[in-house]
C-alpha cells in the first residue's frame, strides 16, 4: 500500500487503428504521476494532450496499454472494483446525466448503483441536493437547468458514493464566469472535507486558483509536475520589470543595453514591461532605470499562462 492518492508509473495508452482512424495513436506515452492526498492536483494541457485518457484509465473505464496506475493504493486493472467503490468522476458536459428526469431521480438512481440502500440513498441524495444548492430545483428535469446547475448535478453525482478521490474532467468548460466561480468555491469547501481531487483543465486561472500542484502534459508526455508557484521558478524564465516612463530615450537605452529580451507597452499608457535576459541582469536593469530617475517600478514572476505557453510551445490552446 502507498500513501499516495494516485500513483502512476510508465503509463502508456495506444488507440489501435480502426475504421475512420487508420493509424494507431499514442494518447499517453510513459506518464509518471504522483498525487498527494487532501489536495487539488491540476492536470494542464491543450486539447488532445491525453488528460481525458488519463482520467478514464484512473477511473477504470479504459485499460492502459502498458504501465501501472494505483488509486488510493488499488491497482486500476487488478482491483478495479475496489477503485470504483472509492472514487467519483465528474464530467464537464451537459451530457452524462438522464436529462429527461429530475435531479432527485438521477441522484437516487446513481445512489443505487453505488450500493447505497434505499434509506441511505435517499438521505445522501437530499444531503447532496442541499449541498450543491439545488434544493429549489430538485424536482425539475435536468434538461430544464442552466449549464452551471447541470454541472452541480454532475458534482453531486460524482460525490454520491462519498468518494475519497474525485476526478474532475474539465468541470467548468462552457460555464459563464459567475457559475465557474461558484463551482470553484464549492470545490474549495469539499476540499476541506479531506477529499483529493484530480482536476483536468486548460483554464490556467482555474488551475492557479484551485490547485496546490499542477502537472503539465502535452501529446501524451508529461512535461512537468510542480507546485503552482514553483512552475514559474522551475522554468527559470527571465523576470519582468514593470515601470512608468515618459521618455522614449529610456526605452532605447534599455533595448540597447543587452540586458533585456524586449520592452513592451502594457495596457496603461506610459506603463512598460521589460523582460530581463537572466536573474543576474535583472539587478542591472533596475539600476539602469533608477539611474534614469524612474522609481515607480515593480518586478513579478511569470504567470502560469506564460510558463504553460512556453512548455507547450506554439500549440498553446489549439487542438
Amino acid at each position: 500500500m502507498t500513501d499516495l492518492a494516485v500513483e502512476v508509473r510508465g503509463l502508456r495508452r495506444v488507440y489501435q487503428a480502426r475504421r475512420g482512424a487508420p493509424e494507431a495513436r499514442t494518447a499517453l506515452d510513459g506518464i509518471d504521476l504522483d498525487v498527494v492526498p487532501g489536495q487539488i492536483h491540476g492536470l494542464l494541457g491543450p486539447n488532445g494532450a491525453g488528460k481525458t485518457t488519463l482520467v478514464k484509465i484512473l477511473s477504470t473505464v479504459l485499460l492502459p496499454t502498458e504501465g501501472t496506475a494505483r488509486v488510493l493504493g488499488y491497482d486500476v486493472v487488478e482491483h478495479r472494483q475496489d477503485v470504483r467503490t472509492r472514487i467519483g468522476t465528474v464530467f464537464g458536459s451537459e451530457r452524462g446525466l438522464y436529462a429527461r428526469v429530475s435531479v432527485r431521480r438521477n441522484l437516487l438512481f446513481w445512489a443505487s448503483l453505488y450500493g447505497l440502500s434505499g434509506r441511505v440513498g435517499r438521505h445522501r441524495t437530499e444531503q447532496l441536493i442541499e449541498r450543491v444548492g439545488l434544493a429549489e430545483r430538485a424536482d425539475d428535469r435536468v434538461e430544464e437547468l442552466s449549464k452551471g446547475m447541470v454541472q452541480r448535478v454532475h458534482l453531486a453525482r460524482g460525490l454520491i458514493g462519498d468518494p475519497r478521490m474525485v476526478f474532475l474532467d474539465e468541470p467548468t468548460t462552457g460555464l459563464d464566469p459567475v457559475a465557474a466561480l461558484d463551482f470553484r468555491a464549492l470545490l474549495g469547501e469539499l476540499l476541506a472535507e479531506g477529499r483529493t481531487f484530480l482536476l483536468t483543465t486548460h483554464d490556467l486561472d482555474e488551475a492557479a486558483a484551485l490547485c496546490a500542484e499542477v502537472t503539465v502534459i502535452d501529446r501524451g508526455t508529461l512535461l512537468m509536475t510542480s507546485n503552482v508557484r514553483d512552475v514559474g521558478r522551475r522554468l527559470a524564465a527571465p523576470d519582468r520589470v514593470d515601470f512608468d516612463a515618459e521618455d522614449n530615450m529610456v526605452l532605447e537605452k534599455l533595448r540597447g543595453s543587452g540586458l533585456v529580451n524586449g520592452v513592451s507597452e502594457l495596457d496603461k499608457p506610459g506603463r512598460y514591461r521589460a523582460e530581463a535576459t537572466s536573474k543576474e541582469s535583472l539587478t542591472s536593469v533596475i539600476r539602469l532605470l533608477a539611474d534614469e530617475g524612474i522609481t515607480s517600478l515593480s518586478t513579478s514572476p511569470p504567470t502560469l499562462e506564460e510558463v504553460y505557453l512556453q512548455l507547450v510551445g506554439d500549440r498553446g490552446m489549439a487542438v
Binding site: 473505464v61 470504483r84 468522476t89 464530467f91 451530457r95 452524462g96 438522464y98 446513481w110 443505487s112 453525482r157
Partner: peptide, 18 residues
C-alpha cells in the same frame, strides 16, 4: 449517445443489471 455509458461502466454495479 447520452454519455451515461462511461458512468455506468465506471460504477461498482454491473451494466447488465441496469
Amino acid at each position: 449517445w447520452q454519455a451515461t455509458l462511461e458512468g455506468l461502466i465506471g460504477s461498482p454495479s454491473r451494466l447488465g443489471a441496469v
